Simulated scan of single mutants.
Amino acid sequence: MTKYVVIGAGILGLATADAIGASDPSAEIVVLEKEDRVAPHQTGRNSGVIHSGIYYVPGSKKALMSKAGAESMRRFAKDNGIAMQETGKLIVATNESQLPAMRKLLARGQENGIPVRELSAAEALEFEPHVRAVGAIRVETTAIVDFVGVCQRLAEQIAERGGEVRFSSPVTGMHHQGEQTIVQTPTGPIIADVVVSCAGLYADRVAAQDAGKALDYKVVPFRGEYFELTREREHLVNGLIYPVPNPELPFLGVHLTRMARGGVHAGPNAVLALAREGYDWKTIRPADLLDSLRFPGFWKMAKDNLGVGVMEVRRSLSHKRFAASLAELVPEVTEDDIVPSPAGVRAQLLTRDGKIFDDFLIERSGRNVHVLNAPSPAATAALEIGRHIAQQATASA
Score class of each variant (00 low, 15 high):
Glu225Gln: 15
Lys89Val: 07
Ala382Met: 02
Val150Gly: 00
Glu86His: 12
Val30Ile: 15
Ser316Lys: 00
Glu277Asp: 15
Asn305Leu: 03
Ile144Asp: 00
Glu118Cys: 05
Leu249Ser: 12
Arg75Phe: 01
Ser365Asn: 14
Met301Asp: 00
Glu228His: 14
His235Tyr: 15
Ile50Ser: 01
Asn305Cys: 05
Leu326Phe: 14
Asp204Met: 02
Gly297Lys: 00
Arg45Glu: 08
Gln85Thr: 13
His265Ile: 02
Thr334Phe: 06
Leu274Cys: 09
Leu119Gly: 05
Lys303Ser: 13
Arg276Glu: 06
Gln180Lys: 15
Gly307Asn: 13
Asp204Gly: 00
Asp336Arg: 15
Val371Leu: 12
Ala260Ser: 11
Thr230Arg: 15
Glu225His: 15
Glu277Leu: 08
Arg103Lys: 15
Gly21Glu: 08
Leu306Thr: 08
Gln348Gly: 02
Val31Ser: 09
Glu160Phe: 11
Phe227His: 13
Val49Ala: 04
Gly113Met: 12
Ala211Val: 01
Gly8Met: 10
Ala343Val: 10
Pro170Phe: 08
Pro342Ile: 12
Val116Lys: 03
His255Arg: 10
Val254Gly: 04
Ala395Val: 05
Gly53Asn: 03
Leu372Ile: 06
His130Ala: 14
Pro100Asp: 10
Ala347Trp: 00
Ala207Val: 04
Ala93Trp: 02
